[in-house]
């Protein structure tokens, strides 16, 4: 096989050029490349037909990296100052830290969450089917009687099996959840969450984290849904690439011994139990170079030319 590969090496060049040609394809599709990172412009994704039934038009970020300059630790993009302090206090209890042993506060999880929520006017950043009807829940043997309106009733204990079913956008869920959190903190300890002692804050979180607990102050999001949302964002804010605003100084990756994105490993690396490599961020990963020249251009798909979908070969 190895000899065959050497013999046939010459034939591979046109294939590689074929792939290199897609640089032009990407540019034509409105995807902007900046030093190897690509991100889509933040627009309503309406490139595919919604012409038959108008879709609800709201902006959402379709798996984007924040643009350079969009991450600002010194400016709030979505939260009010009170909301920001509350959120930061909450995530700092989920992942506590000190200057020597960074946690959520030190790693910039608040910046991560605020950036995420400020990138669109909903806070959605993954494609979400957000059409009604939204389900309602009931407890007991049978759903409420027909009232002439269309409802979809799901038995409460089964509801979690259906995954995300909220009628709130992430922005709304944060805003409403923080209000409920403070109401509950006041009802129990007579103060806003951010002003409680760490022990009292933990006592509040303990209840929210318990899926069986009923907390009257929370309707939507539920107390558990609010806890889960903040915990998930704490994971991402601690451990996603620092380009997203969190994981400051790679604090999350250093905590767990993760070297961040590397170009590759060898079979020897796989069997080694040596300490991990020094961590690096995506921006520090050297660009991938397939080591072939550009030249022949083959543009087989429609981004090449919106009016001409045919295969075209040039310079061959």
């Amino acid at each position: 096989m190895a000899e065959d590969a050497r013999e046939q090496q010459g034939r591979s060049v046109s294939r590689r050029d074929f792939l290199r040609s897609s640089a032009y394809v990407a540019a034509g599709a409105g995807i902007v490349g900046v030093t190897g990172l690509t991100f889509r412009e933040l627009t309503v994704d309406d490139t595919i037909s919604d012409g038959i039934v108008p879709d609800q038009s709201f902006a959402y970020a379709d798996n984007v990296l924040p643009a350079p300059g969009e991450v600002r630790a010194d400016v709030l993009g979505f939260f009010t100052p009170d909301e920001a302090r509350t959120t930061e206090a909450f995530v700092a209890r989920l992942m506590p830290g000190t200057p020597d042993d960074p946690g959520a506060r030190e790693a910039g999880v608040l910046t991560f969450i605020d950036t995420r929520l400020s990138m669109t006017d909903t806070g959605f950043w993954a494609a979400t089917y957000f059409r009604p009807p939204f389900a309602e829940t009931y407890e007991g043997d049978s759903p409420p009687e027909d009232d002439g309106y269309r409802h979809i009733y799901i038995e409460q204990s089964e509801f979690a099996r259906y995954g995300f079913q909220s009628r709130l956008t992430p922005r709304e869920a944060y805003r409403a959840g923080i209000v409920a959190l403070n109401q509950y903190a006041r009802s129990r300890f007579d103060d806003a969450f951010v002003d409680l002692s760490e022990d009292d804050q933990d006592a509040v979180i303990e209840v929210l984290a318990d899926e069986d607990a009923e907390v009257d102050e929370f309707t939507e999001p539920s107390a558990k849904a609010f806890f889960d949302m903040l915990r998930e964002d704490t994971v991402y804010g601690m451990f996603a690439d620092p380009a997203y605003g969190g994981n400051r100084d790679l604090a999350g990756w250093k905590l767990i011994g993760y070297p961040g994105p590397q170009r590759g490993y060898t079979p020897v690396d796989l069997m080694s139990e040596d300490p991990p490599r020094q961590p690096q961020a995506l921006a520090d990963l050297h660009p991938f170079d397939p080591g072939v020249r550009t030249g022949d251009v083959v543009l087989p798909v429609s981004e090449a030319d919106h009016r001409d979908h045919r295969l075209r070969e040039a310079g061959r």
Binding site: F18, L19, R20, S22, V25, A26, A29, P287, F288, P300
Partner: peptide, 9 residues
């Protein structure tokens, strides 16, 4: 449309 390079680079 997409190809490995530079799409996945």
């Amino acid at each position: 449309g997409r190809w490995s390079n530079p799409g996945f680079a």
